[in-house]
Amino acid sequence: MSQHVIVKDYPYPRPLVWAALTDPQLVPLWTSAGQGGRPEGFVPKAGTRFRFVGKPFPGWDGIVLCEVLDAQAPSLLRYTWRNKVGDSPSLVTNRLEEVPGGTRLTWSHTGFRGAEGFIMARLLGSVRRKMLSRGLPAVLNDLDAGEHLQPGGALHPGA
């Protein structure tokens, strides 16, 4: 079984990082570094079934099927991940903890199985490193204390 774990520290308070991870309007700005999936039907509440809809490519329709297993604001978000209905789910976990100077995010994606799972784990690991190193910090940098994009910011120019 393959897995990926990425740990990143951000110089922002936990509620702000939580908002960037869970606000359906903000998520597409950082997933796949701003070119990726938008959550449809997502609410950070256990039992919520939702879809990530991204750009399709040959062999993938661009849709990931998910279900929230646990959501404890602002510290834990855990959900299943399936590329197709018949797939065994893998598990995405976001843990947020306060650290001096900000928030530590521990992101993990576990439960990949077989050769297809190994390939998917490698692909997603690379994409996630980019998202969490570039995409999420850009969104966090543009959020004000009220968890809204700042007018005139890089992600929300001229608003």
Results as ranks from 00 to 15, higher is better:
residue 3 Q to C: 09
residue 5 V to T: 15
residue 6 I to M: 01
residue 7 V to W: 08
residue 7 V to I: 15
residue 9 D to W: 00
residue 11 P to N: 08
residue 12 Y to R: 02
residue 14 R to D: 10
residue 16 L to S: 11
residue 17 V to F: 08
residue 22 T to P: 11
residue 23 D to H: 11
residue 23 D to F: 08
residue 24 P to C: 08
residue 25 Q to P: 01
residue 27 V to D: 00
residue 28 P to Q: 01
residue 29 L to A: 01
residue 29 L to Q: 01
residue 30 W to S: 07
residue 32 S to N: 14
residue 34 G to D: 08
residue 37 G to A: 06
residue 43 V to K: 12
residue 44 P to S: 08
residue 45 K to D: 05
residue 49 R to C: 11
residue 52 F to G: 03
residue 52 F to M: 15
residue 56 P to K: 03
residue 59 G to Y: 04
residue 59 G to V: 05
residue 63 I to G: 04
residue 64 V to R: 06
residue 65 L to I: 08
residue 74 P to Q: 06
residue 75 S to W: 05
residue 77 L to H: 06
residue 82 R to T: 04
residue 82 R to Y: 08
residue 82 R to C: 13
residue 84 K to P: 00
residue 90 S to I: 06
residue 91 L to P: 01
residue 91 L to M: 13
residue 92 V to I: 15
residue 93 T to W: 03
residue 96 L to E: 06
residue 99 V to N: 05
residue 101 G to Y: 10
residue 102 G to A: 03
residue 104 R to T: 05
residue 105 L to K: 03
residue 105 L to R: 05
residue 106 T to H: 06
residue 108 S to Q: 11
residue 112 F to P: 12
residue 113 R to G: 03
residue 113 R to S: 10
residue 113 R to N: 03
residue 116 E to A: 14
residue 117 G to C: 04
residue 119 I to V: 14
residue 120 M to D: 09
residue 122 R to F: 04
residue 123 L to F: 07
residue 123 L to P: 00
residue 124 L to H: 04
residue 124 L to W: 02
residue 124 L to P: 01
residue 125 G to K: 01
residue 126 S to A: 14
residue 128 R to W: 15
residue 131 M to Q: 15
residue 136 L to C: 10
residue 138 A to Y: 04
residue 138 A to H: 10
residue 140 L to N: 09
residue 144 D to I: 13
residue 146 G to R: 14
residue 146 G to V: 03
residue 148 H to K: 15
residue 150 Q to H: 01
residue 151 P to V: 11
residue 154 A to E: 06
residue 155 L to I: 01
residue 155 L to W: 05
residue 159 A to E: 12
residue 159 A to T: 09
